[in-house]
Design a protein around this nucleic acid. Structure first.
Lengths: 197, 197, 197, 197
DNA sequence: CATGAATGAGTGTTCATTCAT
DNA sequence: GATGAATGAACACTCATTCAT
């Protein structure tokens, strides 16, 4: 019975988070009302409050799931540094530049919300710091293997790559017709430019 | 205080926009209240409403000045394509990765707000489309001159560069210690990678 | 206070309308504030807004109940035309020229408000058109039966009678001492004057 | 110079009152703003405030001119009582049931406003009391001359007649197509009904 | 006298949150 | 747990009025 109950609770929680994501993506964290979310989840106010004790907690829950996804997309294991960098870019692009706008809208809104809420800022930073470390390590390794140019500053290049990938999320929002394939190829081209000659 | 010169009115307007920018950068478009802005501008409600007829107009005014700046920063004239690209990157970085956080915060908030307001979206798009066209033209020109690699898709590369530069605004927000110089050099490195061999 | 019966909701709604009527009668539609109404109803702002979604809806609700009453007061079934006309007049006078000023004040305010709000105008017109039709039919019938003078234009006389009855509401407001009985008798006299000789 | 100046002041005052009447008739006393009136009069706020020291004074000025007109329309000298009554009715109908709605709208709005402002109420009462006295005297005189029925209570009949005439203002507002001629004839018919047989 | 920018108390309305049932 | 009516502080915005020029 506890198991079943817990399962049920987990399901409920997930439904609420999904409803909240839908509403937040549509109207923004501030403009979406809890009433909207109650309606979307087909649940009463009290029911939702049994799972999340404030609107902020709901926002945090969404920011956290988002950062988990981003972190996952920006990680890779590969022997060849150039291939590893390309794989990371491809994965991120597949995850974030395809499908419905919802995840891109939530990403941007979360980044913006991070300016006003330290807990969200921490979550966003976490989602960015690990990929940055991974990329930096790959680049350093590549330089040690003499496969990448020596004049690259690994940390700065890692930052530039994360910047470009996150920046692509913005571009896709401004220009929905943007092709994920074209961007993957362009990333490959840029990464190829880092090879030692 | 009648028969005030147009000059004075322009000044007043500017003061109000500045106060609004300060408040919005601090608390966000939604959470900053007009009362905050009245206090920051040391003006009464009615005085502000003589210049802007709603909170939204104030937000639009700020979004518009922001986009003017961004567009200015992303434009360049130069004979050599590689030099031109580097100049654009350097200028943008100088404009957006140095100085107080305010402009970066406003940028990110405006991008987010664009998801909810078509007028702001139009302003943001305008601020991005022209630079994209300029970058594309430079790249095409460079390919015609055989100075840049043939396997580059100009439009996609232009988008990638804008993405990276806007993405750097985010990185600087997450990591205030980020060095503008290091990023300029890294951009130079990436751009060098586009040269025809 | 959940799972409240529909009955309770209807009661609540009625309480709010009553409070609103009191406040509007006292201060007018524009000068009565919703805060006044909240206080009079001993309810919070939100509670009232659960039943009426704007001040205008509250005004409309009151205009509508008023027009129902007026329509009811101006309708009659009777075989003899002269008796029927007298009955209608008597009923209206009993309903509108006796008791507290509230209903008269609300009537006048509603008539005035109808100049500015088409929904209220429609409600007022409805409350007047049916009685006018009824009176006209009675007069036509009386003429056919040769009980009423032939030189009466039925529609115009119906209008004149409605005018006089509504005009009495004004007179009672200017002169609270006005006697309902005296007015009933005077109406009878006027109606008697319509008999065929 | 004083004469000229006074004349000019009187002209200005009249212009302002006209502008105010236009705005009030259009939007009501409460909803018309002084800004509307400044614009309609093509005058600045300060200019208007030199002639009227508050919005209420402007409303009072309009209520007063209205009541003068009404009083004038409801007065008559004639030897024959029946003819006198008919003349009064005809004059009032000519004055109030013809031409643009403005005067009718102002009348109704003033009546309503009188519920909230004792000075306006006094003005309205004055405009009604004198006609009532005049009508009463005519009726009493007619009874003495044995030209009118004995069973008429003069004061009540006078009230009924004023009620009907003011009520016609309402009817014309609800039904703009209402014919002044038809109403004049109907009034004549009703008055004829008062003759002694 | 005239101007019109400035004032600021006051308005209708919203919405996260609570809690009696 | 679930319900949803109720709360009430807070918000954007209005407008009669003032007064320095």
């Amino acid at each position: 019975m506890p198991r079943v109950s817990d399962e049920h609770k987990e399901t409920r929680r997930g439904e609420i988070v999904d409803a909240a994501r839908t509403c937040f993506a549509r109207s923004g964290f501030d403009r979406a009302t809890l009433q909207d979310i109650f309606a979307e989840a087909q649940l009463s106010a009290g029911a939702v409050y049994n799972y999340f004790k404030s609107k902020r907690e709901l926002i945090l829950a969404i920011a956290d799931t988002r950062h988990e996804q981003e972190r996952a997309a920006l990680t890779a294991e590969e022997r060849d540094p150039v291939a590893a960098l390309k794989t990371i870019a491809r994965r991120f692009i597949e995850a974030y530049l395809t499908g419905a706008d919802t995840k891109r809208r939530i990403s941007l809104m979360t980044w913006s919300e991070a300016l006003l809420d330290d807990a969200i800022l921490a979550s966003v930073k976490e989602g960015v710091d690990e990929p940055r470390r991974v990329l930096k390590a790959i680049i350093q390794n590549g330089q040690r293997q003499r496969l990448l140019r020596k004049d690259i500053e690994p940390a700065a290049m890692a930052t530039a790559m994360v910047a470009m990938l996150q920046g692509l999320v913005l571009q896709k929002l401004w220009t929905p017709s943007l092709s994920a394939n074209a961007m993957t190829e362009t990333c490959d081209t840029l990464i190829d430019g880092l090879r030692a000659r």
